[in-house]
Design a protein around this nucleic acid. Sequence first.
DNA 1: GTCATATTTCGTTATATGACGAAATATAGG
DNA 2: CCTATATTTCGTCATATAACGAAATATGAC
Lengths: 123, 123
Amino acid sequence: MREATRLFSALSDENRLRLVFALRHGELCVCQLIALLGLAPSTVSKHLSILRDAGLLDARKEGRWVYYRLAGRPKVPILGKQVAKIFQSLERSPLIRSDDRQLEKICKENMDALCRRQARRAS
Amino acid sequence: MREATRLFSALSDENRLRLVFALRHGELCVCQLIALLGLAPSTVSKHLSILRDAGLLDARKEGRWVYYRLAGRPKVPILGKQVAKIFQSLERSPLIRSDDRQLEKICKENMDALCRRQARRAS
DNA sequence: GTCATATTTCGTTATATGACGAAATATAGG
DNA sequence: CCTATATTTCGTCATATAACGAAATATGAC
């Protein structure tokens, strides 16, 4: 029961939904996700931690970098008609589309340039 | 996007999940749901309001009584493997089983006896 | 070893949320 | 009309949560 409420709670924040949708294209590094959301690294890290604890994400480390991906192979999510509609419309929502466009750019940048940008932003 | 977060937020509370599962058997009156959860009427009413605003429940009035039911015809909810597992295990969870047993008793009581019990509880 | 860097954890603050009781609203009976 | 009753809304309080910056941790380069 706690697992269920934890899962739904994990998905009840807009930024965390954005993370889940960003990762549907494939694995991303934390620094890329930070660039996408434009939030403090600590905030993004906390959000990712919540999603991972809820069983939605897996993570792997590569040197200093941590990559997150969706856990397993999620199918098209259905939770009754209402939710099916919501999820379909979510992919068409301006925010997710905007995220998708921004993600294209972010994925074209090399990781070093991205991380330098985060460092500059932090100061 | 707000609809999605509202829906997931609606399902992120244990008592609200219990309400949803209780209603999977069919329509119930608020006083029956109050008896099930053992919470204050105002709290149950608030929870039901959240679920209805999220599109999960429909309501109809019959005199002083308000009956709630699941909206439309929900199928077995799937939101990726993780959620499918959670929902399957939820139906086997001690809490939901206990609720099911208690619901049997509650549905055998006539509404008047139930409501008299709530009134006594309120004082 | 030192210094730099990416990420996570911790502590703080403002805001949101779940519980309750009281008040308001809607319906029924005499 | 008055009284009773079921439910909803409102206000309050304790607790949870999302944001941030600072500190801690882990990795890499020299």
